[in-house]
């Protein structure tokens, strides 16, 4: 008797978390641009993008272990470690720079791989494993950079932290960024393009592989995934490895943005905690099995845009933590209201 529900409506219902994260972000960001004296302009967008990308990457890094029902307390530390490594390596001739970038990403991947191996073969819980390996990563970072400093190639730093036209101009692409067809997209921040490329080239294909699907399956019901013959162990190792890659990309971008390396322990833990908050705001279940890295990116953007709003309204930055905490509490408590609808309390124990 009931009418068939429209396809897009079903998809929306399946992705309520992601949709509300996007809506919340757009609302906050619109608000910000309306009240910003130079709102809706490229410089503002570029600056915002530069400040948000590292957290967005780290939030993606956090998402994958969370999807599996685990948690990675080392993402901020791995980001810091790669940040310090990049401040040594990403400089010199183009070949050296390329080598440096590859080495940085490989370092993150290797660290994540080690995390995965300890979790799978050592049979230690992810949260404890990464608590310990996070300390090791900070130690390596401090070893690489006992004091803040170092340098990153200036051209690269300039090109990636500005708009696409600056990027093209720096490397002499598209007639130095003057090509007619290039003009409509020349205003887009290069960092934003980088983020979208990472999502499209790494996350989306990965999610569609057997390993990617296995990660979701492990998060829903590990026993069932194992019984179905899915490669559970390989998926766990791959999840942590990819998490390491994303954290490394975050650290690499932080190095490019700040043009230095800094083994800052409070900053590392702030990134780790913010990444968890971003994952939750992005609609990923901390119990595992549902959500996506794209949602976490928007979760990270929400966290960042809150602090942008603080700046233009001249609210003392001291209040920021309070407001962030209240928004997070409100978001998770709203999700908790479903408890009121549950008729059988046994359904709650999962």
């Amino acid at each position: 008797m009931s009418r068939p529900t429209a396809d897009w409506l079903i998809r929306l219902r399946q992705n309520t978390g992601l949709a509300s994260a996007i809506a919340l972000f757009l609302a906050f960001y619109l608000f910000y641009n309306i009240f910003h004296p130079k709102g809706f302009s490229t410089p503002v967008l570029v600056q915002n993008a530069d400040e948000a990308i590292a957290l967005a990457m780290v939030a993606m890094a956090q998402t994958i272990p969370v999807l599996m029902g685990g948690l990675d307390l080392s993402v901020g530390a791995v980001m810091t470690m790669v940040n310090c490594l990049a401040s040594h390596l990403v400089i010199g001739s183009p070949l050296q720079i390329a080598f440096g970038i590859v080495t940085c990403i490989a370092a993150g991947a290797a660290f994540g791989f080690a995390n995965g191996c300890i979790v799978v073969y050592g049979r230690i819980q992810p949260i404890i494993t990464t608590l310990a390996t996070g300390a090791i990563a900070i130690g390596i970072a401090l070893f690489l950079r006992p004091k803040p400093g170092g340098k990153v190639d200036e051209d690269l730093s300039w090109a990636l932290t500005n708009s696409l036209s600056d990027f093209a101009e720096t490397y002499g692409l598209f007639d130095g960024g003057k090509a007619a067809w290039f003009q409509p997209i020349a205003w887009i921040p290069a960092a934003l393009v980088l983020l979208v490329l990472v999502i499209l080239l790494i996350w989306v294909p990965f999610r569609r592989t057997v390993i990617g699907r296995t990660i979701y399956a492990v998060g829903s019901a590990e026993g069932a995934a194992f019984m179905s013959g899915l490669p559970v162990d390989r998926a766990k190792i791959a999840a942590f490895t990819l998490s390491g890659v994303f954290a490394a990309l975050g650290g690499l971008f932080l190095a490019i943005q700040t043009s230095s390396g800094n083994a800052d322990l409070p900053q590392a833990s702030a990134y780790t905690l913010n990444s968890i908050a971003a994952v939750v705001l992005g609609g990923t279940s901390l119990l595992g099995g549902s959500g996506s890295a794209v949602g976490s990116v928007f979760g990270a953007l929400i966290l960042r845009v809150i602090s942008f709003n603080f700046r233009i309204f001249d609210i003392p930055p001291l209040m920021q933590s309070l407001v962030e905490g209240l928004i997070l509490l409100a978001a998770v408590s709203l999700g908790g209201l479903r408890v009121l609808q549950v008729k059988n309390r046994l359904e709650l124990f999962r």
Binding site: I276, A277, M319, L326, S333, L337
Partner: peptide
Amino acid sequence: LGVAYLRVPSMIFTLAVNAVMRGLMVA
């Protein structure tokens, strides 16, 4: 109360409470 009655995962609920307490104390 948040963990037992709202059944919010403790990891995130206590994280948010930590941020709120920090904000209150800084204020």
